[in-house]
Design a protein around this nucleic acid. Structure first.
Length: 216
DNA sequence: ACATTAAGTGATT
DNA sequence: AATCACTTAATGT
């Protein structure tokens, strides 16, 4: 397929060697996932590795009562580190991944992992790099949960979100934010109000504008 | 104009 | 910091 070819070559030519791109083209499928769709849920076995071409994936943990806690975002040109660790031995997923926006991804069957790791240095370093990056990020979020106050976490959340979407306008209700942070709507409202008084954000209905001061 | 949903607030634990 | 009960404001029909 022409579009497929272009996508793969355009977006990953600097990351992977030509032979690998070719083999990817042959053995993987391109998927389009609509906003809000579940990509993988906790307990399900991982059968393909997602490699994002465009859009954003939200990865979260879920507790016994179904409450979610945001772990991290996966954006274009990235993959989900969890799938690497899970898929090697066909373990079920420990996390839930939902399409945050419309997503275009390459689904790589897990069967080729071992082979590619040995055959392609660029694949190996890509896998290693994403695992290492994600691991560091997870350490950060653990630090946040353990040591940071909720208001600092909220600022962090907003800045992360803005980076993931590439916009300083966040289209979320206070309730949705509360869900992501495993907090409650009222608490988030109060903290946001505080941030607004400090001149870091502007609040609207279903929308928050980030001002420059929040990024420093 | 009315119903519905988001956001703001005080009190209580 | 969470929850409840309630008010106020914005938005859709």
């Amino acid at each position: 397929m022409v579009t497929y070819n272009n996508n793969l070559a355009d977006k990953f030519s600097s990351v992977f060697e030509p032979e690998l791109l070719k083999e990817m083209e042959a053995k993987s499928k391109i998927l389009f996932v609509k906003e809000g769709e579940l990509i993988i849920d906790i307990g399900r076995t991982v059968t393909t590795i997602p490699l994002l071409l465009s859009g954003v994936l939200k990865v979260s943990r879920v507790d016994e009562n179904g409450k979610e806690l945001l772990l991290y975002y996966v954006s274009a040109h990235q993959s989900c580190a969890m799938t690497f660790t899970c898929c090697m031995q066909q373990y079920p997923s420990e996390v839930r991944a939902i399409a945050e926006s419309d997503v275009e991804l390459i689904a790589i069957p897990i069967g080729v992992m071992d082979e590619w790791l040995m055959k392609y240095p660029t694949w190996k370093s890509f896998v290693m790099r994403t695992v290492r990056n994600r691991f560091n990020e997870l350490l950060n979020t653990i630090d946040q949960l353990a040591f940071q106050k909720l208001d600092e976490r909220l600022v962090n959340y907003l800045v992360d979100k803005s980076k993931a979407t590439g916009s300083t306008i966040i289209n979320l209700s206070h309730e949705e934010i509360a869900l992501d942070m495993a907090s409650s709507r009222e608490v988030i409202s109060r903290l946001l109000k505080k941030l607004e008084n400090e001149g870091m954000v502007l609040l609207y209905r279903n929308q928050i504008k980030l001002l420059k001061t929040i990024f420093s």
